[in-house]
Design a protein around this nucleic acid. Structure first.
Lengths: 230, 230
DNA sequence: TCTTCGGATTGACATATATCAATAACAAGA
DNA sequence: TCTTGTTATTGATATATGTCAATCCGAAGA
């Protein structure tokens, strides 16, 4: 199936690494059971609690994975970009999405029928192993996150968040961080007011240069220091 | 292989649920590559950072899974009992244990060679699927934990901890919680002093009866209330 | 250009929680 | 029985962080 963009799973370069373990026929079958959709910045791609019948891959754009917490509070678990498999872990537990996915920028996303993926797991051991390996990696990062969010102070958490944006998300020391202060807070577990205050402090200390959503990291060494000790 | 206790994987009743997906031959092979060991309360079963070459099952006793945090702080991720597979998620990532396991009580543990398990994953799709399903379940509970530890106040977290002990760990409303206040704190993310204070408050309010390590839950409804709202 | 509205910012204040230090209680050896 | 070391408890105090309310700013329309 070639869609209007001539994209297919067999020539996809933004898909899941683990797809390399599929045979050509399997990949073609995946291709037959997928479809693409576009989302505008801010739109919800799927919502916590709804049935999960698809596994999702971003073709382009940024999205956030968030968990609904107590009295309307939210926590952003992760930011995602093309190349990562997005699957509600509920797929193998209760068939529901256990977190929400929303577009941070305009997003083009690929939906693959979950039953097909499950079928591949059962028929292709290497694929299953790749899946397991993926889940294990996530488990580790989620442990790191737990530690960071519970034991570091705000300065350290914000420093970590900024470094994550620079190094992992935008891969540049100067970037337009497309999210609001509120969202930065949901990612680093603090209020938007605290984000503002500490961002300002970093700015005055010459560690970062902040101009609304444009953030430039000036003293990375220092920021790493704060991330570790803070 | 029947050991001194006449125990073998084929008649094991405390093993991993997912072992039911193995064939008799496979189970016998697992049996050939396992050994048992005993630990006294307080002893470390494996330590974060060491190579993980085995998957572990408790035969009897309680253990805790803990993560080393910042400047000597620690966080207890989970308490484990027989029936649960204990595997460093690092097995499929960096070959190291990414957390420590220590005995809370006297423990008899079964060590199964990790390569054998990996081999079963590749040769038995149902087993692989069971493994994935297990990892997904954990992912969900770890999300819940993240929410609880970051968004609830101490009272709520301690209430949750107490209910966990009563309902999941000891399966009784009166129990000898074998751990120290320090450990309760590491599980609920607070200092031992705070644990003492709030435990006392609960005691004075008639919600629990505390006598050193013996804890009795008197007003479970109330405790559940505190867990949710607190 | 003028409005409008959502986010950003700031300051004052409340409070949850940690830290520190001292003491008490208890268990295990000698 | 005495000693010693670990854990529990308590109180005083410091601090990190959230909350609330007011104001500011900038982008999108009218």
């Amino acid at each position: 199936m070639l869609n209007e963009n001539n994209r297919s799973c067999t020539n996809c370069i933004v898909g899941w690494n683990n797809f390399k373990n599929l045979t050509t026929e399997q990949l073609e079958k995946v291709d037959l059971h997928r479809y693409e959709a576009n989302f505008k910045a801010g739109e919800i791609i799927f919502k916590q609690g709804t049935p999960c019948s698809n596994i999702i891959f971003l073709v382009s754009g940024f999205a956030k994975i968030s968990l609904e917490g107590l009295d309307g509070k939210r926590i952003i678990l992760n930011f995602v970009q093309p190349g990562r498999m997005i699957m509600g872990p509920g797929l193998y537990v209760n068939g529901r999405h256990n977190y929400s996915l929303s577009a941070l920028s305009n997003v083009n996303a690929c939906f693959v029928n979950a039953d097909i993926i499950k079928e591949m797991v059962l028929s292709n051991p290497q694929f299953a192993e790749g899946y397991i390996s993926d889940l294990c990696k996530r488990s580790l990062t989620s442990h790191e996150r737990l530690l960071s969010l519970t034991q570091k102070k705000m300065h350290g958490r914000l420093a970590e968040g900024l470094l994550f944006m620079a190094d992992t998300m935008f891969k540049a020391d100067k970037f337009d961080c497309i999210m609001t202060r509120q969202e930065i807070g949901e990612f680093t577990n603090m209020t938007k007011e605290s984000v503002v205050r500490i961002l300002n402090k970093f700015h005055h200390e010459g560690i970062v240069k902040v101009n609304n959503t444009i953030i430039e990291i000036l003293d990375k060494k220092r920021l790493q220091q704060i991330m570790i000790t803070g």
